[in-house]
């Protein structure tokens, strides 16, 4: 057992608590709500598939893009991160994972996003409801978000 557990950002932590408070069958319903709440792409992205990276760990096609503000110029770690996802309606689990990360991470600073622990996907009490195998898709999303955040904040 690790002596300390890296905390989740507040918004993600709140989502994790919401899931944990529900009995397992209702966790699926909450995941469905995240799936349905995943925002549509803004026009600037919808017409630019080249700005998206495919997450191959997901069983269904999921594309994500990360945008980092260019201000403050002197403090890249304090710049805000914005997330965009695209996944088909026929892939609600994948959309649900994306919805959780969108709500939990969008608008955080570069520093905050990079500090999110890599095991975060396992903290939503979803292993029993969707199987640990399927959670790998969310692990893949998170690692790509972090990598793109690094790249985009150095640009």
């Amino acid at each position: 057992m690790p002596e300390t557990v890296t905390p989740l950002p507040d918004a993600l932590e709140e989502i994790a608590r919401d899931f944990a408070d529900l009995p397992p069958p209702e966790r699926l319903q909450l995941l469905l709500e995240f799936s349905e709440g995943l925002p549509d792409l803004p026009e600037a992205y919808a017409s630019h598939p080249d700005r998206f990276e495919q997450v191959h760990e997901c069983q269904s096609p999921l594309f994500l893009a990360v945008d980092v503000d260019d201000q403050p110029a002197d403090d890249p770690g304090a710049r805000r991160v914005h997330l965009f996802f695209q996944a088909p309606q026929e892939a609600p689990t994948t959309r649900g994972f994306a919805g959780i990360l969108q709500e939990g991470l969008d608008g955080l600073t570069v520093e905050e996003v990079l500090a999110v622990p890599d095991d975060a996907p396992y903290r939503f009490s979803l292993g029993e409801a969707v199987s640990p195998l399927r959670l790998r898709g969310m692990v893949g999303m998170l690692s790509r978000i972090k990598r793109q955040t690094v790249l985009k904040s150095q640009a």
């Binding site: 319903q29 799936s35 269904s60 026929e90 609600p92 689990t93 409801a129």
Partner: peptide, 21 residues
Amino acid sequence: EDVLLYDTGHIPGALKLDWHQ
């Protein structure tokens, strides 16, 4: 494949059978 797809809507009378669970 997607464990939630049934919940988004299914053929009337159908029940979910999840391969993993």
